[in-house]
Simulated assay, not measured.
Amino acid sequence: MDSSQPRIVLVPGDLSGVGPELMVRLLADPANRVRARLLVTATAAELDSFARTAAATIPDRDDIELLGTTYTGPEIPVGEVSVAAGRRALADLATALDRCAGGEADGVLFLPLNKGAMGQAGMREEDELRWFAKRLEFEGFTSELNFIESLVTARVTSHVPVSEIADGISAGRVLETIELLNRAVSQTRTSIPRLAVCALNPHAGEGGKFGREEIDDIAPAIELARSRGIDVEGPFPCDTLFSRAVGGDYDGVVTMYHDQGQIAMKLLGFDQGVTVHGGLPVPIATPAHGTAHNIVGTGAADLGPSSNAFDLAVRMADQRRSTTGIDSISKSEVPAK
């Protein structure tokens, strides 16, 4: 193996879904295996089983390091949410993070997870990103970044009830999200990103008629980001912004909450989407789709998002080996409200 290559831990995700077969299809492609040194949280027998499900063949495994798994529970039922699947996913993710924290790996690619299963298995955080941060003892700002071919998004709030979104909007969080997105786009797409920021309220609040978040928090954060040299505009009504962005006006968009960005991104590029867990000290990527229980073993799972996620994980991990990558950003000096 080439010691200069980035070392990527591949995690099959929730074993009840399509993750294992997608992972095998990635491993079966020789072009992927020459780009990185691959470590896999599975046993040899499991890899054989995954390959049978995927109707795929891995021609030579000598360059794949099988880490096995620390999971010792019951067999995981296929095609359904279960405590066992959640426990296995958390165990494998912990192994991957520990390898990176210990200097034995440079990045992680995990296949689709099920938050319900992980919650049943004991995950108390709102999502895996916050679980990752806790496991890594990282207390800085984090945000999920979503990539399609034409656009990158980051969000100020994520997996919270709609009733709590407004409380999560502050000048500090908006600024940190802009800075993180600017770093991500500049290191993966273009050196001088053009960014836009969504409003929270309809019609960008209509001068305070429909809410003051645009006046009190979002616009001040944009102005401060501009004073720091970031090319960013807004806040713009979300219902028109994405058509401008995908038309080429912007390289990245900051959204205020999960569905404000994700509905647009999945309509624009469901077969391309990648999620990156931005802000963490470890590069972590995953395809931006779910476990797809209804198509396990049918061969219908689209490999495109997983291939894109692999590509991004390798690039970020390679960058991490030589410099500070998009997984690191300074905390904003703007106080939260």
Rank of each mutant, 00 (worst) to 15 (best):
A219H: 12
A219K: 15
A219Q: 15
P220M: 08
A221K: 14
A221S: 10
A221Q: 13
I222H: 02
I222P: 00
I222T: 02
E223K: 10
E223H: 12
L224M: 15
S227V: 09
R228H: 12
D231C: 05
D231T: 07
D231W: 14
E233V: 15
F236T: 14
P237C: 01
C238G: 11
F242V: 11
F242Q: 01
G248K: 09
G248M: 09
D251A: 02
D251Q: 06
G252P: 01
G252M: 08
V254G: 02
M256G: 01
Y257Q: 08
G261W: 07
A264Y: 03
A264K: 06
A264M: 15
L267G: 09
L267T: 12
L268A: 15
F270D: 08
F270K: 12
D271Y: 04
D271K: 09
Q272V: 14
G273W: 00
V274P: 00
V274T: 02
V276F: 14
G278C: 04
G279W: 06
L280T: 10
V282N: 03
I284M: 11
P287A: 04
A288Q: 04
H289C: 05
H289V: 09
H289R: 13
G290Q: 03
T291M: 06
A292M: 12
H293C: 01
N294Y: 09
N294K: 15
N294R: 13
N294M: 12
I295L: 07
I295W: 11
G297M: 10
